[in-house]
Amino acid sequence: MTKEKDFYQNLQPFLNCKDYTVSGEVYKVMLNKEYDMLVTTPVPKNLATYYKSENYISHTDSKKSLLDKVYQIVKKTTLKRKLKLIDSFKTSSKNILDVGAGTGDFLKVCKNNSWNVFGVEPSLDARTIADKKGITLQENLSEVKNIQFDVITLWHVLEHVEDLSSYIITLNKLLSKDGKLVIAVPNFKSEDAKYYQEFWAAFDVPRHLWHFSQTSISKLFASENMVVEKTIPMKFDAYYVSLLSEKYKSGKMNPIISFYRGFVSNLKANRTKEYSSLIYVLRKS
């Protein structure tokens, strides 16, 4: 990334978004044209408190609401796909690090398939749930030392990281010479993002500090001599995000409309390649 001061000086207004999960507060989402990247401002000083909600499902295993049930069903399918992806990589030690591991489901699947698993998760509640599944997680990335990883994964995590530049440097150091860095993030260039605009659930302010495009991911990691090797769509995300976005927009669930919007988003992405969320597979150049 360019010097942080310059990065923030080059911001332009994009839209204002409301925090529908915890506070109801409104935040500015600003555009940096050079990186084709959006930034949430301001960043709350007590950011950790904005994750303390039963509605923040990645830190729980809740199955109470319709959204919870949809999330858990989709999660089972995506876990299989994630495992298939990492199993496709040629590795020497099968050491994998999952950053932002949540309640440990992905690492549990990896462990059951002969991977040596390591994980990081800031939420104590999520770490406690993971521990009951036999997955021990560290609180911070700084606690992971003296080991290199064949695969490092961040499933919808990079958008939450405060000090983005130093985090990318750390990830590069932890990755082995021939390792793969796998990053999944929402894509604000997608059709569902354009349709729902300030109601788009994947903006998720203020928890999502950064909002990426394909251009921004390439530029950010190029600064650490890393290149995008492959981009993979996450087609389920268009439906789930549309379901939640429709709730924010209309105040109620509209499964039929949400399914239609997700379908349209994926249909247009077949041509533009701008899916609701994208997985980036990166390597050292």
Rank of each mutant, 00 (worst) to 15 (best):
T2S: 07
Y8H: 15
D19G: 10
L31V: 06
D36S: 12
M37N: 10
V43I: 15
V43A: 09
K45T: 15
K45V: 10
N46P: 02
L47N: 11
Y51P: 07
K63N: 07
K63D: 09
S65M: 07
L66P: 01
V70K: 04
Y71R: 09
I73S: 13
K76Y: 02
T77M: 11
I86P: 03
F89A: 08
T91C: 04
S93R: 15
A101G: 12
T103C: 08
G104P: 04
F106T: 06
L107R: 00
N113R: 14
N116S: 10
S123W: 03
D131W: 02
Q138L: 14
L141K: 13
E143M: 08
K145I: 15
I152M: 09
I152T: 03
W155Q: 02
H156I: 06
H156L: 06
V185S: 14
K189Q: 14
S190G: 00
E191M: 15
D192W: 08
D192V: 08
A193W: 02
K194L: 09
K219W: 06
V228L: 05
E229S: 09
I232M: 01
D237C: 04
Y239K: 07
Y240H: 13
L243P: 01
K249M: 15
G251E: 06
S265L: 08
N266R: 01
L267Q: 01
S277R: 02
L282V: 10
